[in-house]
Design a protein around this nucleic acid. Structure first.
Length: 810
RNA sequence: GGCCGAGUGGCGGAAUUGGUAUACGCGUUCGACUUAAAAUCGAAUGACGAAAGUCAUACGGGUUCAAGUCCCGUCUCGGCUACCA
């Protein structure tokens, strides 16, 4: 008598797969027919940061979803690309280096080796010949190349501006990396600092990034988050004249229809025109307010919802009414959005109303509420009919929005304008462990790109990884690396001259490195290009991309780069990911987040080593619940899945086969159910269907066909056990198909309801389903039905598809 | 405050297009095997009830022959967002 021994068979199959390189994808131009008609699937997870802690159960859920799909399509004889890589730049490795002196290069290598060892123990169907690592010079050479393409087109540029600065990590952060005024990495409060920084001009693609969202097969949650992040709003830009002053003030508003109700203007405290508006009387107070605002942390500015502000001393003219209206400054107006100035319409905007109330400014109603709208005593921001608005009186607000803009346009003081919340992507990082920006400067600060044939600009070895307090990364300490001589075009004379240059010491945001890796996978060792044209047009875009993080940043950046490179003729598609699956987290048994500090972390390798094996772990994590919801780890349920696999083993290796094939119908039913469930990513119900099948086989007896079908259907979840079974059965792993004819039986059960409640079940010949009269008669003959229809029958409804008859009693 | 999800047995969850609510798993109980235990196998398991039956999908209404599913209102939990003019 043999026993299910996962340790033994998993080791055996992992060895075989390694030796055979079993999961290598066929390559166009090499293994594939010239017409490239072989159907393909390109499936990937969001590549992980290989932390020193190794795999956790969340990784396993994420990677197993990819693996199940990859194996499922592979068994359907499709050409599957299922690569793997590591996102290795970043602060943890650098902070570790600062602490221990162990170089990030070395620590990264150690961590990758550990990760890889663990991944292999999970039996993933990865094409290991395509492994990539963003901190490998052969990889980041092409990241730098990508940067230069953006630079050439003016989409990578340098600008001085206030930036988020993390005082602990001593680096600039992107907007996306500031969470509630705190650094996303270390959690310390961030500050604003004025610095010259590199940006990618993602705003050029704002409209396309927004418009293409709807067509994506992505979760609505992510789509909405991206839409909100881009934050498009349509409105008007209106120019206000300043009384007794040549300066004009531009404002942005989404409600030009309310212009007659604008009773004051408010400028952001950072607005440059303020210094020209102040009078001797107001100067001191204004300056004081501006200083205070700049000093205030973002949190203080957010927490204090009470309106503050000061009067500048100047007045503007409302172009509608011709009236003088005061110009104020306040921190509720943000410099970074619109024009950094607004026309305040307190009667129809809650914020303006609060401000007006606090500083006793006039409130002028210009919209008449439609009748029946609830009286909201404060201010009304809905639609209605214009009043107090000169010749626009009586117009509906929606019509007026167009008409007012047209009227302003004729006077050349206003125009239609679209504004976005999204800003350009700040990519400079004052860190050592990142991809060096391939730029150098001459003495005058002119910038020169490093020529493509001189890439990569490699990261020099240093002894001390600490950034200095000037805001420069540790790269500045590599003196030999820092300076170079290069032949460049002189910016004044245009002549070619040899110049002494200094390298840029900022490195790229790690998100830049991960913005193109999905394309590197198609030709990972290509020495001539970032990606091979033929390979990319065969494999990409990625069919299924699976992750649990980076809803906005990463997923917006890959879309941006995709559109950019498509415009350069380098990619034959404009969206990088067809289907996005966003899986839920796995929490501790108590429902709380797993964390080292709480000591409630479940180590997947422990589960395997306890004797459960990888197949149990994989199958359990697919069975734990719908893939897109968070789930709590349940040690008892792991045991249940192990029992199920054990029963599969017993059926195949330790039980006699049945001579009669009584299970043909349930076999075909199961094949259909599992196949359809996998097509709709319903992994938990697919496993449940397999459990049901095994329970039935225990009861009814098992044929060889049953075992083969079971092993094939099980293989995506528990590939080692399934391989062991298929080997014994001398069967291939080609995905089984079902025949509808076996799903039908001669007799069917018809549900009999009275007034929608189940009262009886009829067993009728399948052909009788066509004969409503007969079924009706049989139903009415049922004793229990008669009990409930003593007062007669009003109506009978027969639903053939549902095999159901409902009798409406009087 | 705004937007988006979710609420089903003791627990995780199933019900795909309005058509038998509670699949599958855990737990619990009983039985078989065993000197005994574990493992394994079998049976039962929403609540009340002897049964017939009645009541149950957060709560209150509605539409329908029929509602976990659709509509209106309320509550609770989770996520995102937060003065974006």
């Amino acid at each position: 008598m043999s026993r299910y021994n996962p340790q033994e068979i998993e080791k055996k199959w992992q060895k075989i797969w390694e030796k055979e390189q079993a999961f290598a994808a066929a390559e166009p131009g090499k293994d594939l027919p010239k017409d490239l008609k072989t159907p393909k699937k390109y499936i990937a997870e969001m590549f992980p940061y290989p932390s020193g802690a190794g795999l956790h159960v969340g990784h396993v859920r994420n990677f197993t979803i990819v693996d199940v799909l990859a194996r499922f399509y592979r068994q359907q004889e499709m050409n599957v690309l299922r690569p793997f890589g590591y996102d290795t730049f970043g602060l943890p490795a650098e902070n570790y280096a600062i602490k221990t002196g162990i170089s990030p290069q070395e620590a990264t290598e150690t961590n990758i080796n550990n990760f890889k060892k663990q991944l292999k123990r999970l039996g993933y169907a990865i094409d290991w010949s395509r492994e990539i690592n963003t901190s490998d010079p052969e990889y980041y050479r092409w990241t730098q190349w990508c940067f230069l393409q953006l630079y050439k087109k003016g989409l990578a540029y340098r600008r001085e501006s206030y930036q988020w600065w993390c005082p602990v990590d001593q680096t600039v952060l992107a907007n996306e990396q500031v969470e509630n005024g705190h650094c996303w990495r270390c959690g310390s409060e961030v500050e604003k600092k004025k610095m010259k920084q590199w940006f990618f001009k993602i705003t050029d693609y704002a409209d396309e990034l927004l418009n293409d969202i709807d067509a994506l097969d992505w979760p609505d949650k992510i789509k909405t988050m991206q839409k909100n992040w881009i934050g498009r709003s349509e409105g008007a830009e209106i120019e206000f004249e300043v009384e007794g002053n040549k300066n004009k003030i531009k404002v942005f508003t989404t409600r030009p229809d309310t212009i007659f109700g604008a009773t004051f203007l408010v400028l952001a405290p950072e607005h440059p025109v303020i210094s020209k508006l102040v009078t001797d009387k107001t100067k001191e107070k204004v300056d004081q307010y501006r200083e205070e605002t700049l000093k205030k942390s973002e949190i203080e500015r957010q927490e204090n919802k009470e309106k503050t502000g000061v009067f500048t001393g100047s007045y503007a003219i409302n172009p509608g009414t011709g009236e003088k209206i005061p110009i104020w400054i306040s921190d509720y107006v943000l410099m970074g959005y619109g024009e950094g100035a607004i026309m305040a319409v307190p009667a129809h905007d809650e914020r303006d109303f609060e401000f007006a109330e606090k500083f006793d400014l006039p409130v002028k109603q210009v919209i008449e509420k439609p009748e029946g709208v609830k009286d909201d005593e404060k201010c009304y921001s809905g639609e209605g009919e214009l009043i107090n608005s000169g010749h626009f009186n009586g117009t509906s607000t929606s019509d007026a929005r167009e008409m007012v803009v047209a009227w302003l346009e004729r006077q050349k003081i206003g125009k239609k304008k679209v504004t976005y919340k999204m800003r350009d992507w700040l990519i400079s990082r004052q860190r050592y462990w990142g991809c060096p920006i391939p730029i150098a400067y001459d003495e005058d600060g002119n910038e020169y790109p490093i020529p493509e044939d001189q890439l990569p600009v490699t990261i020099p070895e240093v002894k001390d990884y600490k950034p200095d307090n000037t805001g420069r990364s540790a790269l500045a300490k590599a003196k030999d690396w820092l300076s170079l001589e290069m032949e460049v075009k002189d910016p004044k004379t245009g002549e070619k001259v040899k110049k002494k240059l200094t390298r840029e010491t900022d490195t790229l945001d790690g998100y830049a490195c991960s913005s193109w890796y999905l394309w590197r996978y198609v030709s990972p060792s290509d020495k001539k290009a970032a990606w091979d044209k033929k390979a990319i047009s065969y494999w990409a875009p990625t069919d299924v991309y699976v992750g649990a993080d980076h809803a906005v940043a990463h997923l917006l950046y890959i879309r941006f780069w995709c559109k950019f490179f498509a415009d350069q003729g380098l990619l034959p598609f404009r969206e990088p990911v067809k289907t996005l699956l966003y899986n839920g987290y796995i929490n501790a048994p108590d429902g709380k987040k797993m964390s080292k500090s709480k000591g409630n972390v479940i180590d997947p390798l422990d589960i395997i080593d306890q004797g459960y094996g990888a197949d149990t772990l994989r199958t359990y994590e697919m069975f734990i619940g719908p893939y897109d919801l968070d789930a709590a780890w349940d040690p008892k349920s792991v045991g249940g899945v192990y029992r199920f696999l054990n029963r599969c083993w017993t059926l195949c290796f330790d039980k006699e086969l049945s001579k009669k094939d009584e299970t043909i119908s349930i076999r075909h039913k199961t094949i259909k159910k599992v196949t359809e469930d996998l097509h709709r990513n319903s992994f938990n119900t697919a496993v449940a269907a397999l459990m049901e099948y095994v329970n039935e086989l225990y009861k009814l007896g098992t044929t060889k066909e049953d075992l083969i079908a079971l092993a094939k259907l099980l293989k995506p979840f528990g590939p080692h056990l399934a391989s062991e079974m298929l080997e014994k059965l001398k069967a291939d792993d080609v995905w089984p198909t079902w025949d509808e004819k076996y799903l039908k039986s001669d007799t069917v059960e018809v549900i009999v309801q009275v007034n929608g409640k189940l009262r009886a079940k009829l067993s009728v010949d399948v052909n009788d389903l066509e004969d409503q009269k007969k079924i009706e008669k049989l139903a009415l003959e049922e004793k229990n039905v008669q009990n409930f229809t003593k007062n007669g029958v009003k109506k009978v409804i027969f639903v053939k598809k549902a095999k159901l008859i409902n009798i409406v009693a009087a």
